[in-house]
Lab assay of single mutants.
Amino acid sequence: NEEPLPEGWEIRYTREGVRYFVDHNTRTTTFKDPRNGKS
């Protein structure tokens, strides 16, 4: 039961299956979860 991502964020996966987060607001990507700060 995960809380929803902030507005404008999306979860994607690399070809290796590593989860990362896309911030469409700033057009950046990060491996850090914007909901809780954990990677």
Rank of each mutant, 00 (worst) to 15 (best):
N1M: 13
N1V: 14
E2T: 10
E2A: 11
E3M: 12
E3G: 13
E3W: 09
P4I: 08
P4M: 09
P4Y: 07
L5S: 02
L5R: 01
L5K: 01
L5A: 02
P6F: 03
P6S: 04
E7V: 12
E7T: 12
E7G: 09
G8K: 04
W9Q: 00
W9M: 02
W9R: 00
W9Y: 04
E10G: 06
E10K: 05
E10W: 04
E10L: 06
I11G: 03
I11L: 11
Y13L: 07
Y13S: 04
R15F: 11
R15Q: 10
E16N: 15
E16P: 05
E16W: 15
G17W: 05
G17A: 05
G17M: 06
V18W: 11
V18R: 14
R19I: 13
R19E: 07
R19P: 12
R19V: 10
R19C: 11
Y20A: 01
Y20M: 06
Y20S: 01
Y20K: 01
Y20E: 03
F21I: 00
V22A: 05
V22E: 05
V22P: 00
V22L: 11
V22S: 03
V22Y: 15
D23N: 10
D23Y: 05
D23P: 01
H24T: 10
H24V: 08
H24A: 07
N25M: 08
N25H: 08
N25K: 10
N25Q: 08
N25S: 08
N25Y: 09
T26G: 06
T26S: 09
T26F: 04
R27A: 13
R27K: 14
R27M: 13
T28M: 08
T29L: 14
T29R: 13
T29N: 09
T29S: 11
T29Q: 12
T30V: 04
F31E: 07
K32Y: 13
K32I: 15
D33P: 04
P34M: 00
R35L: 03
R35P: 02
R35E: 02
N36D: 14
N36W: 11
N36M: 11
N36I: 12
N36S: 13
G37A: 10
G37Q: 10
K38S: 14
K38R: 09
K38Y: 14
S39M: 12
S39F: 14
